[in-house]
Computed example of a mutant assay.
Amino acid sequence: MLDLTTKGQGGIGPYIGLCAVVSLFGIADATVKGGMIGDLSLMCPELIQSFMAGLAVAGALTSALRLITKAAFEKSNDRLRKGAMIFLVISTFIEFLCVMLYAYVFPKLPIVKCYRQKAASEGSQTVSADLAAAGIQYQSDMTNYDSKSQRLSKKDLLLQNIDHAVNLFLIYVLTLSIFPGFLYENTGQHGLGTWYALVLVAVYNFWDLVGRYMPLVKWLQTKNRKALTIVVLSRYLLVPAFYFTAKYGDKGWMIMLISILGLSTGHLTVCILTVAPKGYMGPEKNALGNLLVTFILGGALTGISLGWLWLVGKKDAF
Rank of each mutant, 00 (worst) to 15 (best):
residue 135 G to T: 09
residue 84 A to F: 13
residue 233 L to E: 05
residue 261 L to P: 03
residue 243 Y to Q: 03
residue 88 L to V: 04
residue 192 L to R: 05
residue 129 A to M: 12
residue 139 Q to E: 12
residue 276 A to H: 10
residue 6 T to V: 13
residue 164 H to V: 03
residue 81 R to V: 03
residue 233 L to C: 13
residue 271 C to G: 04
residue 240 P to D: 13
residue 207 W to I: 03
residue 190 H to P: 02
residue 131 L to W: 07
residue 36 M to G: 00
residue 138 Y to T: 02
residue 22 V to E: 00
residue 234 S to D: 12
residue 316 D to V: 09
residue 75 K to I: 01
residue 306 L to C: 08
residue 272 I to Y: 02
residue 76 S to K: 10
residue 67 L to Y: 06
residue 150 Q to V: 02
residue 99 V to I: 12
residue 189 Q to W: 07
residue 276 A to T: 10
residue 126 T to D: 12
residue 15 Y to M: 15
residue 221 Q to P: 00
residue 69 T to R: 13
residue 203 V to F: 00
residue 18 L to F: 15
residue 42 L to W: 04
residue 11 G to D: 07
residue 3 D to T: 10
residue 86 I to M: 14
residue 272 I to M: 07
residue 152 L to E: 11
residue 177 S to D: 03
residue 299 G to E: 10
residue 239 V to A: 13
residue 89 V to M: 15
residue 50 S to C: 05
residue 276 A to G: 11
residue 224 N to D: 15
residue 25 F to I: 10
residue 214 M to N: 09
residue 21 V to M: 00
residue 299 G to V: 01
residue 266 G to A: 04
residue 112 V to N: 11
residue 165 A to Y: 05
residue 269 T to E: 10
residue 141 D to K: 13
residue 299 G to L: 07
residue 261 L to Q: 13
residue 32 V to F: 06
residue 128 S to R: 14
residue 228 L to P: 00
residue 94 I to E: 01
residue 57 V to W: 10
residue 200 L to H: 05
residue 191 G to F: 14
residue 143 T to Y: 03
residue 92 T to D: 11
residue 99 V to C: 14
residue 8 G to L: 12
residue 171 I to Q: 12
residue 192 L to T: 05
residue 295 F to Q: 02
residue 78 D to K: 04
residue 23 S to A: 13
residue 59 G to S: 03
residue 303 G to H: 06
residue 181 G to C: 01
residue 105 V to K: 09
residue 102 Y to S: 10
residue 226 K to L: 07
residue 292 L to G: 02
residue 63 S to I: 06
residue 238 L to W: 14
residue 56 A to F: 02
residue 218 K to V: 10
residue 40 L to Y: 12
residue 121 S to I: 00
residue 226 K to A: 12
residue 185 E to P: 00
residue 196 Y to C: 02
residue 190 H to M: 01
residue 107 P to H: 11
residue 308 W to F: 14
residue 165 A to G: 00
residue 314 K to Y: 08
residue 175 T to A: 15
residue 190 H to D: 14
residue 172 Y to R: 08
residue 173 V to S: 14
residue 114 C to E: 15
